[in-house]
Computed example of a mutant assay.
Amino acid sequence: MKFYKISKDSGKKIFHFNSNFIMSRVIQTDKTTNIGCMHLEEGGVIGYHQAVVPQLLLVIAGEGYVRNDKDEYFKVQSGDAVFWEKDEWHETKSDKGLTAIVIESVELNPSLFMPLKK
């Protein structure tokens, strides 16, 4: 058994796309799948940009807001999962702080495993 840290002190500050958050990488597979842990502190933001590949955001703590190419923000909190298709514009922000796992891969299809939120 081995134990690893995904806390924000093991992460790297990201400023691309006018962002302000800490990314803690978790794993990369041979199938070009990237999994990371994002730590948005108070006022943190993952800046508005296009998804390079399909992307799944799993909120594990805190709360925040997400949007796509519309100007409307939707509240997300622990237990929510948000999926963006390749090339879809999106942004995530938090007033109080948010921690999320992000999974990026050309082969993502979350509807195979998770029901839609009502």
Rank of each mutant, 00 (worst) to 15 (best):
V102S: 15
A100V: 06
E91N: 09
V106E: 15
A100Q: 09
P110F: 04
S105A: 00
S78N: 13
E104L: 03
W89S: 12
E104Y: 04
S111W: 10
D80A: 09
V76P: 00
A81L: 11
K96M: 13
E107V: 09
E88S: 10
S94L: 09
I103R: 02
F83T: 00
K86G: 04
S111Y: 06
S105W: 00
W84E: 06
G97W: 02
T99E: 01
D80R: 09
A81G: 15
P110A: 03
Q77E: 15
H90T: 08
G97D: 08
E88F: 02
H90R: 04
A100I: 07
T99D: 00
L112T: 07
W89T: 10
P110S: 03
F83Q: 01
W89G: 10
K96I: 12
S78A: 15
H90V: 08
K86F: 06
S111A: 11
Q77P: 04
Q77W: 07
S105F: 00
E88P: 03
G79L: 04
K96E: 15
V82I: 14
F83V: 03
G97K: 03
G79E: 05
F83Y: 08
K86W: 07
D87P: 05
T99P: 00
D80L: 08
K93H: 12
W84K: 03
P110K: 05
F83L: 04
G97L: 04
E85R: 12
V82F: 11
E104N: 03
Q77R: 14
V106I: 11
L98V: 03
K86E: 15
T92C: 14
E107S: 09
I103K: 01
V102E: 14
S94Y: 13
